[in-house]
Design a protein around this nucleic acid. Structure first.
Length: 151
DNA sequence: GCCAACGTTGGC
DNA sequence: GCCAACGTTGGC
């Protein structure tokens, strides 16, 4: 069992959007970064804990708890020439991009990025490191427990 | 909208 | 395989 922080732009999929989706589940398609893909394809397992993070918005921060709810599978948008996530170098035989499904556990209070920065216990959290841009990052079990306690 | 940081691309 | 140019991310 591992833990992850996954960024989503609320203008794309917010925690409230997730709550309204069938099975409160979203397919995490559209990731086009190899490190983030590898986390999903190689390291994630069904049941892993997810901190659902709102990014690129007025109040960036953790908005809820979720779980990985599928194994990784090919991102269908890479095959669709009409889609903005189309990848001409991918094919059905050799897909390049994979993703998992993520299911809501519960919406929480918004725990702002600024508050995360105040806790020395979280000083090693990947998204707090300077220059971090990765949309999916691993979270230590201790960090995850500490954060859940703040929610 | 600015800009630092980082990833990707492509010429050589 | 180097590296300059370019594109993207995302907080502020």
């Amino acid at each position: 069992m591992r833990y992850w922080l996954m960024k989503s732009e609320p203008s794309d999929v917010s925690i409230d959007d997730l709550a309204r989706l069938p099975n409160q589940t979203v397919a995490w398609y559209g990731v086009r970064n190899y490190q983030a893909r590898n986390f999903m394809r190689d390291d994630m397992q069904t049941g892993d804990g997810v901190l659902f993070y709102h990014s690129s918005c007025k109040e960036p921060g953790i908005a809820g708890l979720a779980r990985v709810s599928s194994a990784a599978y090919a991102d269908h948008t890479q095959f669709d020439p009409q889609h903005k996530y189309f990848d001409p170098k991918a094919s059905l035989e050799t897909p390049r991009w994979f993703h998992v499904d993520v299911q809501l556990v519960r919406k929480t209070r918004l725990l702002p990025l600024t508050e995360l920065r105040h806790h020395p216990e979280l000083q090693h959290l990947r998204i707090l490191q300077r220059g971090n841009r990765l949309s999916i990052t691993p979270v230590e079990a201790g960090e995850y427990a500490f954060i859940v306690n703040l929610l």
